[in-house]
Amino acid sequence: MATSTATLPRRSAGARARRGIAPYLYLVPAFFVMAIITFYPLAFQVWMSFHDFGQINFRVRNPVPAEFVGLDNYVRIATSQLQIPNFEFIRLVLFNLWWAFSNVVVHVVIGVFVAVLLNTKGLRFRGFYRAVFILPVVIPPIIVATVWRNMFDPNAGAVNLGLQGIGGFFGISPEHPAFNLDWLRQPNDPISWIPLPLAFFAMITANSWLGWPLNSVVATGALQSIPGELYEAAEMDGANSWQKFKAVTLPFLRPAMLPYAIYGFVITFNLFFLPYFMTQGEPFGRTEILVTQAYRLAAERRLFGVAAAFSVYLFFLLLVVTLITNRMAKATKSYAD
């Protein structure tokens, strides 16, 4: 993309005006605002994380200085010594990582599958399907999360009612326990050897509904860049559909899908809406992720110091995630060009 300007010989014409103070003047408005409402609060957050900062410490009149506690907040989080029921830091981090990873895998697989189907030559009603499949993307996530919460309601939710309807079709009574699941709060795990609550499966269902269409869009873009001759060549060599997919389609999909999958991982890792509005961390805080837990610490428990330390942990975790995924992206970048 940079090729259009690189060869222009006239660069020195405007270059003189571009030196000096002018560039900074263009940056001042944005950075002045960011300094006040982003960088200062971030620095303050680090300071807070070393203090026992609670409700009383931000009174404006007769303020009480916050007590310095050193690394206490960090230690209490890491050793799960907080005054919150069912809080286990390691479990929370592992669940959060698994949540992001499992979602991205499901989204990419469904997204690519649908994109390949839609890209079939001679397919009818393609425009209709494309229009319908974009619908989950255009609906605000907060609404998606609250609607799915009601969908998974044990008594009046559409999921159980729908299952009862399907069961009734096969002559099974609507009282059957499989059609009356307490999706979001059932305490015992549905599959005994997988330590994940039923609410996780409800959440991944809702998030997949929300997430695969964008993956499909990205995959479609990549698919349409594949020259048709490649398929013809593969056919001449006698390749079947699966072989064609492996030899021709996948190499073209990878450079587009991998960066998007990484981006999706980070977005899902921090996806506040679903755990907060849909499961509200139930059962027993087991579907909580880091961002919802940090928010609850501040908004519900008013443990500002602990929440600040929590955010610092979150920052470093994200940094590690980004560094690893960036390496992965670089390692596969040669595919793209």
């Binding site: 303050f44 957050q45 807070m48 500002f304």
Partner: peptide, 12 residues
């Protein structure tokens, strides 16, 4: 994520 800056912003 915005959660990471919201707490100090509240106090600020």
């Amino acid at each position: 994520p915005s959660v990471a800056t919201i707490i100090p912003l509240f106090i600020f």
